[in-house]
Design a protein around this nucleic acid. Sequence first.
DNA 1: TATGATACAGTCCAGACTGTATGTAAATGT
DNA 2: ACATTTACATACAGTCTGGACTGTATCATA
Lengths: 223, 223
Amino acid sequence: MSAALPRRTQAERSDAMRQRLLAATLESLAEDGYAGSTLSSIVRRAGVSRGAQVHHYPNKQALMLDAADDLLRSSYRTLGAVLLSVADEDNRLEMLVQATWEQLFATPLYRAYTELLVASQRDAVLAEALRGMLLRVSKVFEPAVEHYFMPAPGTRENLKAVFLQFACLLGGLASQAHLLNDTAHVAAQLKLWTRQAKLVMHARKGVRLPPPRPVEWDRPVHS
Amino acid sequence: MSAALPRRTQAERSDAMRQRLLAATLESLAEDGYAGSTLSSIVRRAGVSRGAQVHHYPNKQALMLDAADDLLRSSYRTLGAVLLSVADEDNRLEMLVQATWEQLFATPLYRAYTELLVASQRDAVLAEALRGMLLRVSKVFEPAVEHYFMPAPGTRENLKAVFLQFACLLGGLASQAHLLNDTAHVAAQLKLWTRQAKLVMHARKGVRLPPPRPVEWDRPVHS
DNA sequence: TATGATACAGTCCAGACTGTATGTAAATGT
DNA sequence: ACATTTACATACAGTCTGGACTGTATCATA
């Protein structure tokens, strides 16, 4: 009769609980902001008790750090999927731009990232963590860029810099999107950057294989 | 013997007090963030009592709204000065880019703006206020752009969009500047955008006059 | 100069948040 | 089967915040 109680192992219970807490934390960051994400509201959102949180994360910073880690890990996976999805497209750049915006920057997850980013301006530990995670993400993106694109003949533009520009542009755009109540601006900006980028880079012809898959970052054991 | 008490008028006292409160608020926003800018800390920073604040601003939101107004007004003036300063330069675009970054985006004031911007994501009143103020600022910038620059012959690029791109780029750059601990990246990005912009616009030749000075926004009487 | 309005100072209070301490159930090891 | 560790729940302590409230000094005006 204990069909509803499948007797989970300790590790399973812990992982599930951590997952619920992290998901609730990221939701809360996106909706209520960093300061608004109080421990009480997070556990309420996760539907667990206060004790569960304090058991897995001794203090708020630890929870936030792990949430940041989870966020960047998730973005890493999304980015990987995006890069794969444009593999067999002819107009790779357009697809990449559109997909990056829609699936990465125009999402609640990016709003959560924004909150962590501004909080990191006053939290050196969080800043260091974000720095390291960004480095790891860029380590995936840059080889993929090399895999798919090459500098246009005649130009000697640094593709890394052009994509860093892209990231800053999308970041700034996302931060102000709720003020510009005209969504056409966003589309225009995406098109504008695409046009500019095409001047300095070409999609490599005949590349139908996905980019090299670097070090796995999917499930490192929790420290 | 009352040499130290020059008998100020009521309006003078009020203005001076409001100024101290607003300055302290913007400092606090830049240093301690939005949530960290508590009323107690602000009045402590301003060196005034709690009662002074509550007299001039009935609640925290009113203070923040006026601080945002002051911030945008100040940026408006700075931007005007920047535009004037590049009037008689030959390499106007480079100077404009550099000055905009140094005097507008790489300042504590922009950090304060960032705090207000993310806070406005959950404060509709603040968002509306920022929206209106940004509109007014752009109303200064756009005529100045027309005054100084023209689309390059052959291209039909929208200069407004290019400068909106510039703003988003600088915003994104400033938000992440504390993570990229390499200041060379910023300079490289500024150069990159300048190069791209030069492809679609030229400085008008022989323009030695400052841009048209639109509606004044220097000291509207306080409501 | 008398009277009211304005500017400012200091204090109090209800609520909220974080961290901690303690108690109970479930899982694990032997 | 039982002891021990792990996972989770509840209660509490201390701090802080924002708003309300009362009191005092300064200014405007008739």
